[in-house]
Design a protein around this nucleic acid. Structure first.
Lengths: 316, 316
DNA sequence: ACCCAATATAGATAATTATCTATGTAGGCG
DNA sequence: CGCCTACATAGATAATTATCTATATTGGGT
């Protein structure tokens, strides 16, 4: 059997001939001429090397080999078809996979996008990577992920960025701190307090350091802690002050207070970052589209929605 | 997806690329040049409409879609392969189907060929039709079966016949008949006895009638019974004499005796009959080949073996 | 015996495919 | 930095395929 020349097309035609029991009917249905179908049948017979049909009482019937061939055709066609459907779903982003890498801070908001997304698209498989800015930059260098969330884009002109959600950094104090209810403050006033800070690789730290530097302020006493959550708890228990994303604090937490410090909150944004040249998996695009609608509806972040729209436009 | 242009060949090449992770290695293995494989890959990508491979660290790896495509390829290839194996078995006659139509008398010997055959080729499905000569001729006219067993071939020059086993017709009498032990007899002597005969459509009857006519003998008293078995039993119980195939009588039957009548046994043969133009299913050919060896080994019928050999030679 | 519909065959042609050689390009390794 | 090796692209060509129109054949029904 000259299997290599077997085509899906040939099997489609054959299956139709067997189903209809007629060459002419097949030709009509497939918008071909009758001789074309006859010849396809002949070619198929040559490929198989045995008679596959015989005509009996005006109908075309498969021979024994023909019946096996028909089964084969049904089998192959249905599988090819299933693949076609998979492809469609993949293209629509309704199925498939993408990976997204988040800076630590974003852990507090991204679930509010990813959760509903997974609900809505259960066949999309999302890999979430979490790390500090440094780690993420490393991954970014190596093209390891489809999508990144930074609060400050990498310094690479091949990136497209969409600031989708504001990420205000606030000064946090224990509830019993003397600064609570002391009215408007300045950082100058607070600089001798102990500050609990993230490690230098972190975006929060980076932004705060830059701000301090621009003001020419030097903190007297700092303590480095690698986790936002740990910092929040430490502040709550009176270990010092901290600068944290407001999203790290939830309303239920009554052991910490946000201090009104001049210049604060520091403005920053979470941004979706993609490489300009990267072919985004449809599922990732679908996620971005989904994020747009959630942001508009639940976060009232029209700017974020617009930023994503622009990013999507630049990709395609 | 332009499914219609998908070929088995393309999938073979693709599968090999994925397995080896290398275009060049695939080219070597399939005795192609490297550019050929590259182009096949491209064509496949065009058919699918999405990137299917990406190169990473020197290896060619499938994309997500590529993985699904690889699964598809394995699926389709293994099924096509299974069909190929089926075809091979079919061609060897080790699998498949054929039909054989027997005259009644042959019922007594054919099981001795068909039984061992089915044992040896359990995947061959045999349809056995049984009828009298008339009924079989009717089936023969309509090309209903692949193989026929007659004791006298139909009068049609499109047939090939292989007399494979002698079928002597003998005169049978009840054990207590006065003719037993009366020495050599003639039909003339016996003609006033009652003869139990098959119906006129039967070959046995036909042959006997012809013989009587050639001798100018007319029987005085006959009784028509449609079954050989019934005739044998009737003779055993003293209802009269009969002319039967010797194969109808088994050694264990002691209530009947073969009379030595001049001119008997009438010589006749069971013959395999096929239409010259009919394309015999491989399974039927396999059966004939099998019958050859059984006849030689168990029936000591060298002539039958030769006759089948000749018939097989004329077919192919 | 004749006619009709269904098939098969022939012949033609444009498109596609399979395959090559030659050449360009790019990622790794010393 | 330059040299391999692997891969991609280009260009060429012979073979194959898909498809048509026109015509022959055939197998039933009336």
């Amino acid at each position: 059997m000259k299997m290599r020349q077997l085509t899906i097309r040939l099997l489609q035609v054959y299956a139709e001939v067997i189903r209809s029991g007629s060459v002419s009917a097949t030709a009509r249905r497939l918008h071909l001429t009758q001789p074309t179908v006859s010849q396809q049948l002949r070619r198929l017979r040559e490929i198989v090397g045995e008679p596959i049909v015989e005509s009996e009482a005006g109908r075309i019937l498969p021979t024994e080999v023909g019946q096996a061939l028909y089964q084969l055709s049904q089998d192959l066609l249905s599988r090819a078809d299933a693949f076609g459907q998979y492809l469609d779903a993949y293209r629509e982003g309704e199925r498939g996979h993408f990976s997204i890498a988040l800076v630590n801070t974003a852990q507090y908001v991204l679930p509010r996008l990813l959760g509903p997304f997974s609900q809505a698209y259960p066949d999309v498989d999302v890999t979430v990577e979490i790390g500090n800015r440094q780690q993420l930059l490393h991954r970014f260098e190596r093209h390891e992920d489809d999508l990144y969330v930074f609060s400050h884009p990498p310094d690479d002109d091949a990136v497209l960025a969409a600031p989708f959600l504001s990420n205000p950094l606030v000064v946090v104090a224990p509830r019993r701190s003397p600064w609570v209810d002391a009215g408007q403050l300045t950082m100058e006033t607070l600089k001798s307090e102990r500050f609990l800070l993230r490690e230098p690789g972190s975006a929060t730290r980076h932004l705060f350091d830059g701000w301090l530097q621009s003001r020419g302020i030097q903190l007297d006493s700092t303590l480095q802690i690698a986790s936002n959550e740990a910092i929040r708890v430490a502040v709550g228990s009176g270990m010092g002050l901290a600068v944290l994303s407001r999203h790290v604090l939830t309303e239920a937490q009554t052991d910490t207070v946000i201090l009104p410090v001049e210049g604060f909150p520091l403005r920053s944004h979470w941004q979706f970052i993609v490489r300009r040249e990267r072919h985004l998996p449809p599922a990732a695009q679908r996620f971005l589209t989904f994020a747009q609608s959630v942001l508009a509806r639940e976060f009232e972040e029209a700017e974020g929605e617009a930023a994503i729209a622009e990013l999507l436009a630049r990709i395609s």
